[in-house]
Structures are given as structure tokens and as C-alpha cells.
Simulated assay, not measured.
Amino acid sequence: MAIYFAEIDESSRVVRVVSIPAVQVSRAQEYLSSDLGLGGNWIETFPDGSVRERFASVGMLYHADTDQFISAQPFSSWTLDASGVWQAPVACPGDTSEYSWNEDLQKWEAL
């Protein structure tokens, strides 16, 4: 069984995700940094999202305060809610149409 770890850079961004043998999990930092020569700061990530809310992927951010991986902020006006999901300043209409966010106008536009 493989165990997954995400490498986090100095800005808490995920730069890569690797799997290691389960027998190495008790010494994962040492295994990744020294044995494999990868260096870095490694955080375990789980494919089912059972820990840290979601499986890490390159470009995501790790929030130590909430111990979760989140996607990068899609627009500067969006805020992060307690569950680690970015929310627009205006709720998306709930109909069946498709919408995209217009950051300049701060509104949803139908496609």
C-alpha cells in the first residue's frame, strides 16, 4: 500500500506529491529528505480526503492553522470559508444555467 506526501515550499504551496512504501511511513521525513535526497518539508495527504479535507495536488496551499489543503485563491475578491472552500462575494445564481465570475464587475455572468 502506498502512502502519499505533499512537498510544501516556503510559501506553503504544494510543489509535488509522491508516494512512498507503507513500511517507511514512520520515518517519512527522513526517508524522503535523506534516503531519496529530496529535501523539503513533507505533509501526508490522503486520496480519500479523510484527513486535511482533500487530497493535495500541485499548486494547492497547505494551511497549517486549519491543517488542510486548499485550492489556490481563484480571484482576489473571494474569501475562504471555514471548510476551506473559496466563496465569491456574491452567491452564484441557483438556476440550471452556467456562469462565470467577472472579477472586474464583481458579478456572475451567464455563459
Score class of each variant (00 low, 15 high):
residue 65 D to K: 04
residue 9 D to M: 06
residue 47 P to S: 15
residue 35 D to W: 11
residue 43 I to W: 00
residue 79 T to G: 09
residue 43 I to V: 15
residue 75 F to D: 05
residue 56 A to Y: 00
residue 55 F to N: 00
residue 85 V to I: 10
residue 38 L to H: 03
residue 22 A to W: 15
residue 45 T to G: 02
residue 36 L to D: 08
residue 70 I to H: 00
residue 38 L to C: 05
residue 54 R to W: 03
residue 23 V to S: 08
residue 70 I to V: 13
residue 91 A to D: 12
residue 74 P to C: 07
residue 110 A to C: 08
residue 53 E to Q: 11
residue 36 L to I: 04
residue 15 V to M: 09
residue 12 S to K: 13
residue 109 E to W: 12
residue 108 W to G: 05
residue 44 E to P: 11
residue 68 Q to G: 00
residue 80 L to Y: 08
residue 107 K to M: 11
residue 73 Q to P: 04
residue 86 W to D: 07
residue 62 Y to G: 00
residue 17 V to H: 01
residue 1 M to D: 13
residue 22 A to S: 11
residue 85 V to L: 05
residue 18 V to Y: 00
residue 66 T to P: 02
residue 85 V to K: 14
residue 52 R to D: 03
residue 37 G to E: 03
residue 94 G to Q: 10
residue 69 F to C: 08
residue 58 V to H: 06
residue 88 A to P: 03
residue 111 L to S: 01
residue 58 V to K: 12
residue 65 D to C: 04
residue 10 E to Y: 03
residue 14 V to S: 03
residue 23 V to E: 11
residue 34 S to I: 10
residue 35 D to T: 14
residue 84 G to L: 03
residue 81 D to Q: 09
residue 50 S to N: 13
residue 58 V to F: 11
residue 5 F to H: 14
residue 71 S to R: 04
residue 18 V to G: 00
residue 72 A to T: 08
residue 45 T to F: 02
residue 55 F to L: 04
residue 1 M to C: 05
residue 83 S to Y: 07
residue 36 L to R: 09
residue 60 M to E: 09
residue 91 A to K: 15
residue 19 S to H: 07
residue 15 V to Q: 05
residue 28 A to H: 13
residue 91 A to Q: 13
residue 8 I to M: 05
residue 14 V to H: 03
residue 83 S to Q: 11
residue 10 E to V: 01
residue 9 D to V: 12
residue 22 A to V: 10
residue 56 A to F: 01
residue 105 L to K: 03
residue 28 A to V: 01
residue 7 E to A: 12
residue 51 V to R: 08
residue 97 S to C: 14
residue 68 Q to K: 02
residue 7 E to Y: 12
residue 85 V to H: 05
residue 4 Y to E: 04
residue 56 A to E: 00
residue 93 P to V: 13
residue 97 S to G: 15
residue 109 E to D: 12
residue 24 Q to G: 13
residue 101 W to L: 06
residue 87 Q to M: 07
residue 12 S to D: 10
residue 37 G to M: 05
residue 54 R to V: 11
residue 14 V to R: 00
residue 110 A to W: 10
residue 41 N to H: 14
residue 53 E to C: 02
residue 6 A to M: 03
residue 26 S to T: 07
residue 72 A to M: 06
residue 65 D to Y: 02
residue 9 D to A: 14
residue 28 A to D: 08
residue 8 I to A: 06
residue 110 A to S: 13
residue 110 A to Y: 07
residue 23 V to T: 09
residue 30 E to Q: 06
residue 29 Q to C: 07
residue 64 A to K: 15
residue 20 I to E: 09
residue 30 E to S: 14
residue 105 L to Q: 07
residue 97 S to M: 15
residue 36 L to K: 13
residue 87 Q to T: 04
residue 55 F to H: 02
residue 107 K to V: 14
residue 81 D to T: 15
residue 108 W to R: 09
residue 40 G to V: 06
residue 89 P to V: 14
residue 3 I to H: 03
residue 44 E to S: 01
residue 79 T to H: 08
residue 80 L to D: 02
residue 78 W to N: 06
residue 39 G to S: 05
residue 104 D to W: 12
residue 77 S to P: 02
residue 94 G to C: 00
residue 109 E to Q: 11
residue 56 A to S: 02
residue 40 G to F: 06
residue 9 D to T: 08
residue 65 D to E: 09
residue 63 H to C: 03
residue 60 M to Y: 15
residue 107 K to E: 14
residue 51 V to I: 14
residue 98 E to L: 06
